[in-house]
Design a protein around this nucleic acid. Sequence first.
DNA 1: AATGAATGAGCCTTCATTCAT
DNA 2: GATGAATGAAGGCTCATTCAT
Lengths: 234, 234, 234, 234
Amino acid sequence: MLLSADMKGNDSDQKNTELFGSVPGTRSRLIEAAGVIFSEMGFDRATGRQICDLARVNYAAVNYHFGGKAQLYVEVLREAHRRLIDIKAIAAAAQDTGPVEDRLESVLARLLHTMLDLSPEGWPTKVFLREMAAPTTAVKELVELQIRPTAQLFRTLVGQVMDLPIDHLAVVRGALSVFGQLIFIFQNRQTIELIYPDLDLRGNGIDAMARHIRQVTLAGLSALARDIQQGDKG
Amino acid sequence: MLLSADMKGNDSDQKNTELFGSVPGTRSRLIEAAGVIFSEMGFDRATGRQICDLARVNYAAVNYHFGGKAQLYVEVLREAHRRLIDIKAIAAAAQDTGPVEDRLESVLARLLHTMLDLSPEGWPTKVFLREMAAPTTAVKELVELQIRPTAQLFRTLVGQVMDLPIDHLAVVRGALSVFGQLIFIFQNRQTIELIYPDLDLRGNGIDAMARHIRQVTLAGLSALARDIQQGDKG
Amino acid sequence: MLLSADMKGNDSDQKNTELFGSVPGTRSRLIEAAGVIFSEMGFDRATGRQICDLARVNYAAVNYHFGGKAQLYVEVLREAHRRLIDIKAIAAAAQDTGPVEDRLESVLARLLHTMLDLSPEGWPTKVFLREMAAPTTAVKELVELQIRPTAQLFRTLVGQVMDLPIDHLAVVRGALSVFGQLIFIFQNRQTIELIYPDLDLRGNGIDAMARHIRQVTLAGLSALARDIQQGDKG
Amino acid sequence: MLLSADMKGNDSDQKNTELFGSVPGTRSRLIEAAGVIFSEMGFDRATGRQICDLARVNYAAVNYHFGGKAQLYVEVLREAHRRLIDIKAIAAAAQDTGPVEDRLESVLARLLHTMLDLSPEGWPTKVFLREMAAPTTAVKELVELQIRPTAQLFRTLVGQVMDLPIDHLAVVRGALSVFGQLIFIFQNRQTIELIYPDLDLRGNGIDAMARHIRQVTLAGLSALARDIQQGDKG
DNA sequence: AATGAATGAGCCTTCATTCAT
DNA sequence: GATGAATGAAGGCTCATTCAT
């Protein structure tokens, strides 16, 4: 392989991308298009032709710029990560003062909206959660950079709700409960919509769903915490 | 005759050919082999050649017995769900007399054990979670035949737990909450183990996790139901 | 090959065919169905499945009874020949007394009707004329048995019209002129109907076409004959 | 570069790449090879591998250049008709001044020579007659682009010969008479030579045959026209 | 006599990739 | 830097055929 992704590196059409918003440069357009396609079809089902058609570039450009479909995928994951620093903002919000209930619901709503957003701009989250369910070797890096902070955040919040130390196993399981209800909806969205067509996962229903999860979780975890603190070890 | 006696003895044909078992089990061997391959590669990446090689069957047998790769896949999904969730047993448990809480607990325990007791190497688990997360067109069949009944059952149970009509949106969301906590672990086991290495999802930890979900869910849904019936519409 | 067509031979279900009109026997049904399919699709395009479906017999029956698709085709050609002895009747009519014009038109009309008949019973003519255009090795036999007599008939008629000896080259060419106008319509029927949709090749238009050919041919050949007999050697 | 100089020199790329001839001629070689194979085997029996082997081209080139076997076939049909009947020349001849009879004779002579002068080994002849006799779905394209204009031209000429309006059915049938005599020989040459071995369809006999058809047709149609105009409606 | 099961060969197509400019 | 042309490797499927009963 003559051109490694590293060699081509970080820029060289950023000049186009950033300055002239209209003609973003072949390489950038490819990543953007690949993000959209990969997030919708997954790595296997996505074809180079689809991506290049969407990016309006030559079909050989994938190999020219990235050395292959796989390397393009890695680059897409990296770009997804870059955009998802947004998570930090969420974490900041979680550390605000105020009742835990409000902070939890705010975080839930934000995440749900990001995940269920249908606009093509939402691909970073999607491609990223796809990787969680079917990890490739490329994902290890992402786990450290994206998932662990988010998980840590939930652990913190749940620890506060349950009034237990952060490394108590019940807190870990509690974080999974919250995270699970959230991610499950995203990861199985199509199937859910098939089974429950009267459930709105696109408009206002998203907020309702966030509130629902908050309510169930708070009550459930509080009850559980009470049990535990009365000696019923998990 | 290409099938030697030991070949036929080795695999699980006998238990697979149900009711009026047909004779040599080519069909069963295909499903079993396809399950293994599909669970490892996914539908797209799996090739008919791999499956037939593993099943020690002629390559045209897929078409002869199932009409194509896609229909074989559907059959594999059916078999997977059949092995994962014994709906009848669940339904029976759900119709037992006794407090709703106990019945829900019983159903949950059953599901959790069915899902989590299986080693992650078992293809039914893998192929099933793969499909729910990245639905192919085959999912419609599966939904109608297998998932919808299960979902309906959950809706009924949750409706009883919450003492709300089955088409109340809070019941639908409640069913998702329960299902979500289960399936999420299922679908993201690898990632979860990466992030929470101290959480045991293979040995005794399974029971602990089961108890956790049961406790959170029951308490959470009950509390939510109380709120709703006091006028706080979900 | 264990069973050659010859070995299976001529009968053994003729008892069914002729006596019980309702259940004609596998072998007969196969030939009949194959005739229909071959006449419509040609040998290459016809598939064994189509034939067996139409005949409502097992898919392996073709090989069982005939030893293969090719041998079935030979048998179909033979059967076509058997039914086309009808030609003899035409020849007889041609030798009737009466004006040549009438006899020619009668023969033309008869042939045209047979050729353009759309009922599935018309397959013998069709499968046979198909062979004329794209002769397989199986056709040689048919040429002798079917085509040569018909050609001879036309030569006779044309000879009478032109008042020339039967082996005069002008007579041969004249026969081709008549035959050509006829066969061309059959062999290119679909194309003709595409180009001249207002031309009726199904109902009364057939008779009109026969009369047309008779008129053109008679006048044209007569004129040509006059020229020749005045010394203008063809 | 796989194409050696002699390869490129041998075939007829130069004359095929019309107008803005592209560079290496893979496409042309494919059409030429496909013509040969299709003419010998028919569309169904011909295989892409045969064609590409003959063209010394990669097997995927068919799809790349034409989008599939079917579209390649259409292109071959177009090329065949282009070579067989130079419509423009015919149309020019038809619009010459002078008596209609002369113009018809001129057109007929042209067609006959184009068709019959070609050795039966020339694929354009074969593939074209094959298609008219056993139309595939590709025939519609061909009809619209090539056959209909030619047919229209004949209708015009015959209409002038017969002094009848172009949509008179007798004109349509007259055009068929002319066309039929030509094409029939074309399509059934093998069989004809089998039956009339003393008829020369390769050497000087072609001219004789041309003159024959011209004489019969002119005299026949004229006579028929006289009859019709005297009230004997066709 | 007849059939359901199973086979093997081969075809058309698609895909990611490389070549040459 | 970028692209149209061309490649080769499979992949899924269909077909005629054979096997075993």
